[in-house]
Design a protein around this nucleic acid. Structure first.
Length: 289
DNA sequence: ACCCAGGGTCGTC
DNA sequence: GACGACCCTGGG
């Protein structure tokens, strides 16, 4: 664990706000100078955009360059992805123009599972607050820039936390879901270390669906936003239902649009890039209201 | 003060 | 397969 810096001079698709506020992550916060600071793994990193490039600095467990290349998925060519999606229709062009600097992060699988269980029927400020409190109570402290940061606790670190403890942290009805899922992962009822080697996305989804608090929407978010990195998923929440109805389906009551209808539409239009398409559409619609 | 909605899931019918 | 219940918080 030591302080390190890294300047990334050549890059494509990298806007701080787009990456950190498109809804994929909950532990990055904007600073007064418009940079962002976040915790991932045993790292605390501050990212800023300068004339010379993207500047990363912070406390890292290993080499900051490899850490950042992996986490921000820097070897993926988003220009190619955006070009492909832009050819689909004007809606995609608009949404990509709005979120042109989005990158999907490689977030820790365990942390992503827990984070999106917490996200159920919840709003983003509250989700972030809950995750911070869990980290502060059960994670490990890292000092950076004279401030205290806390890692997201491992399953082992949550081993003895009770349902009541969770309730006291403000989890609400999600308390028992966290408790049960942690137990299931610890006793390998679901072996999350083996998921990445399974090729078929539906097989991985079925495993995730065994976990308490993981339904179709949460499972798809985990598949898309974690190191599982599956783009052939299409998480449907209220915003995605809204934007898909407004753009393509045009029913009076968006609640009456079936999931099946949205899924087949998305698959036909966006193919195996539907996950990324979903993220442009979601961010565009949610930010513009 | 009151109501509504939020990156849904679960148990029940 | 549809339906209501569920904890909590911020905003109108």
């Amino acid at each position: 664990m030591r302080y390190q810096e890294f300047l990334l001079e050549k890059y494509n698709s990298f806007n701080l706000k787009d990456i950190f506020e498109c809804g994929q992550c909950f532990r990055w916060n904007e600073e007064i100078d418009n940079s962002y600071t976040g915790v991932f793994g045993h790292n605390v990193v501050n990212v800023s955009k300068t004339k010379k490039g993207i500047f990363f600095k912070g406390m890292c467990e290993k080499d900051i360059i490899n850490t950042v290349i992996n986490y921000f998925d820097l070897e993926r060519d988003y220009n190619q992805i955006k070009l492909k999606l832009s050819k689909i229709d004007e809606n995609m062009q608009e949404s990509i123009k709005y979120g042109e600097g989005i990158r999907i992060l490689n977030q820790d699988l365990w942390e992503t599972i827990i984070s999106f269980i917490i996200s159920a029927n919840n709003n983003i400020p509250r989700i972030k607050g809950i995750i911070e409190r869990i980290s502060k109570n059960y994670g490990q402290k890292i000092l950076f820039d004279n401030k205290e940061y806390y890692t997201f606790p491992t399953a082992e670190e949550l081993k003895d936390v009770t349902v009541e403890d969770y309730r006291n942290l403000g989890l609400g009805f999600r308390d028992i879901r966290l408790y049960e899922t942690t137990k299931m992962i610890l006793n390998k009822e679901v072996d999350i270390d083996k998921l990445n080697s399974i090729k078929d996305t539906n097989t991985v989804r079925d495993e995730l669906l065994k976990l308490s608090g993981v339904g179709p929407k949460v499972a798809d978010c985990i598949l898309l936003f974690s190191t599982l990195k599956r783009f052939d998923v299409f998480p449907i929440d209220v915003w995605v239902r809204r934007v898909m109805n407004d753009l393509y389906i045009h029913k009076k009551d968006e609640k009456k649009v079936s999931k099946k209808e949205i899924l087949s539409l998305a698959n036909n239009k966006f193919g195996n890039l539907e996950g990324i398409a979903q993220q442009y559409l979601f961010y565009w619609r949610r930010e513009l209201g």
